[in-house]
């Protein structure tokens, strides 16, 4: 399982990256952490002409708060995100998601931008970003543009990125009072791809749910936003009956594919389970909060 032959070039700046991309053409690929790409290459599932290493570009690194927005450089590793106080405080859903991503040695190399651009339908971070209404910053030699997470994912491994674009940053609104979140996934073993998972972000004020995003992963060809189930919750308070009703409604939001773990019917069943568990987790946290 040796990779096919390709060229390796490293870009130390964004400009250099774009220049190298122009030079090596459409079949050159960005190399960030490489934790999915290098495995795919080992299986010889594709033959890029060149890998352009963007892992050492300074501007792709780092986590910062800009006003009400948290900016995460696309090259930030999962480990860095998991250990970040800023993330724990302002984007706790991401902090909760990180331990679910594979294992330590993978998290030390894998990056958030790589995970989002790779767009594996079972990955946690794309669903989290959709739930958090994140905005992705994409750049190419032509300049920068912003894409909402909701519009970014097009299907299995397919995104809104153009061939010569790369993700530079992820902007996520910082959590405010009344924001609640949960991430639940069902895996057969720790670190596995989920059989079913959900990222939930909701905002509650005056004992009512003002906004809610229920985003499933591993249940479609991309993160699946459950509009119907969310509609059941909006404007009501989070109580067990309501959670049951939302879970029942969720089937209308889904058309899950089968895989080696089971058929679409199992996926539908598990979707209800993760939805209920996520909402109950939020409910339990609410009840534990000081009045």
């Amino acid at each position: 399982m040796k990779s096919p032959d390709f060229a390796y070039v490293r870009a130390d700046t964004l400009d250099a990256a774009f220049r190298l991309k122009a030079q090596h053409g459409a079949d050159a690929r960005w190399l960030a952490g490489g934790q999915s790409l290098l495995a795919a290459l080992a299986f010889r599932l594709s033959e890029p002409t060149a890998l352009i290493d963007i892992s050492r570009i300074d501007v792709l690194q780092g986590i910062a708060v800009n006003g009400s927005m948290v900016r995460i450089g696309a090259g930030t590793t999962h480990t860095t995100i998991g250990e970040s106080d800023i993330i724990r405080r302002h984007v706790p859903l991401l902090a909760d998601a990180v331990p679910h991503i594979a294992h330590t040695a993978i998290r030390n190399r894998g990056t958030i931008g790589g995970s989002l651009a790779f767009a594996d339908p079972a990955a946690e971070l794309p669903a989290c970003c959709v739930a958090l209404e994140a905005t992705f910053v994409a750049a190419s030699a032509k300049g920068e543009r912003r894409i909402s997470a909701r519009d970014f994912f097009h299907g299995v491994y397919a995104t809104a990125l153009e061939n010569d674009e790369l993700l530079t940053a992820i902007e996520i609104p910082a959590a405010v009072a009344g924001d609640h979140h949960a991430l639940i996934e069902i895996t057969r073993r720790s670190g596995d791809y989920a059989m079913a998972g959900i990222a939930v972000a909701l905002r509650r004020s005056d004992d009512k749910i003002d906004r809610v995003r229920l985003v499933f992963f591993a249940l479609g060809d991309k993160p699946v936003v459950a509009h119907v189930a969310a509609g059941v919750l909006l404007g009501t308070d989070l109580v067990e009956d309501q959670i049951e009703r939302a879970a029942k409604a969720v089937s209308a939001d889904l058309d899950p594919p089968g895989d080696l773990n089971g058929g679409p019917e199992m996926k539908r069943h598990l979707a209800q389970v993760v939805l209920k568990r996520a909402l109950l987790q939020i409910l339990n946290n609410l009840m534990r909060m000081p009045a």
Binding site: F43, G220, P257, D259
Partner: peptide, 17 residues
Amino acid sequence: GKIAQLGGRLIDQTAKK
């Protein structure tokens, strides 16, 4: 062949797509 052996998780949805 190899695509059957490696595509388990995604073949169905790719074909559908």
